[in-house]
Simulated assay, not measured.
Amino acid sequence: MRKIIDSHIHLDLYKENEVRRIMNELDSARCTDLISVSFHLESCLHNLRLAETYSQIHAAFGFHPEQELPAAEALQDLFLWMEKHQKEMVAVGEVGLPYYLRSESKGNFSNDGYIELLEQFIVKAKQWDKPVILHAVYDDAPFACDLLEKHGVDKAHFHWFKGDSQTVERMIENGWFVSVTPDVVYEQEIQELAKIYPLDQMMVETDGPWRFEGPFSGKMTHPNMIHKSVASIASIKDCRVEEVYSCLYKNTADFYQFSS
């Protein structure tokens, strides 16, 4: 069966009617599960409510790095809340480093506080025995790798990864996972990653509500787009489509320790 799991989506950022539409169409999309990642404490609360409402939604809690660092009190509130809700949390995420925020600052920006914050999340994930969902691309990826190696983290999921070949090899050797977005259908950079990365260390995602181009231009990002991603991955890797569906599904279900 050609079942899918959306391994990375921001359901809390969709409008209510869009969430209802997605959830009502999951069966027809053959999507059994969604991992909804968080931006900050308010986002965590929203994702928890969604997970309590829909059995197909699994919530990850964290602080997205592409924003101003939280004040000490806000960070303490977030960690205390996450500690309290460990059982409802499938992973720590989305966490990482602010590559795009830093790029837009034109050199007037320091990563230091973000690296310290990422390390705190990695330490907590290790303590809670949870996977880490990472936003760490290009020049930032080696810093994230350093921290994961420092703390002996086995279960790391780099979403929508982009980076140099040396870092890719390092990630593969450590057994870490990447997830591929629908732009694998038309974006050469993502196609190259899909070609190199082992299928048994790969997942698929939408990162919705982020919008895509090519055949998805002008459309609301929906888990059903993943089917085109799977077809592209199968073509790139010269594998049977059924084999790719089965492997990607098993990878994700095993990584996040749920089954459907």
Rank of each mutant, 00 (worst) to 15 (best):
K3C: 09
D6H: 06
D6P: 10
I9C: 04
D12M: 04
K15L: 11
K15Q: 13
E16F: 02
R20G: 10
R20V: 12
R30M: 12
D33E: 07
D33S: 02
I35N: 07
I35E: 10
I35T: 09
E42I: 06
S43M: 05
S43D: 03
H46M: 11
H46L: 14
L50R: 01
A51C: 04
T53Y: 00
Y54N: 05
A60E: 00
A60S: 08
G62L: 02
P65F: 03
E66W: 13
L69F: 07
L69N: 00
A71Q: 14
A72Y: 15
E73D: 11
A74M: 01
F79H: 04
L80N: 07
Q86D: 07
K87G: 06
G93N: 11
G93W: 09
V95M: 06
L97N: 11
Y99M: 14
Y99R: 12
Y100G: 11
Y100C: 12
R102C: 06
E104L: 15
S105I: 14
S105R: 05
S110R: 08
S110L: 07
S110V: 11
N111E: 06
N111Y: 06
E116T: 08
E116Q: 11
L117P: 01
E119D: 03
I122E: 05
D129Y: 03
D129R: 15
K130Y: 04
P131Q: 04
L134P: 02
H135N: 07
V137L: 09
V137R: 10
D139T: 13
P142M: 04
F143G: 03
A144D: 13
C145I: 04
L147N: 07
L147P: 00
L148D: 04
H151K: 10
G152N: 06
A156G: 09
F161G: 08
K162P: 02
G163M: 01
D164G: 14
V168E: 08
G175F: 10
F177T: 15
P182N: 06
P182G: 06
Y186E: 00
E187M: 15
Q188R: 09
I190H: 15
Q191M: 12
Q191K: 12
L193P: 00
K195N: 13
K195E: 13
I196L: 14
I196N: 05
Y197Q: 04
P198V: 07
Q201R: 09
V204S: 05
E205S: 02
T206Y: 13
D207G: 04
G208S: 11
W210H: 03
W210C: 03
W210A: 03
F212M: 13
F212N: 10
F212L: 10
E213Y: 05
P215T: 03
S217L: 14
M220F: 09
M220I: 07
H222Y: 08
M225Y: 15
K228V: 06
S229A: 07
S229W: 09
A234E: 13
D238T: 06
E242A: 10
E243Q: 08
V244E: 02
C247R: 00
K250E: 11
N251W: 01
D254V: 09
Y256D: 05
Y256F: 07
S259T: 12
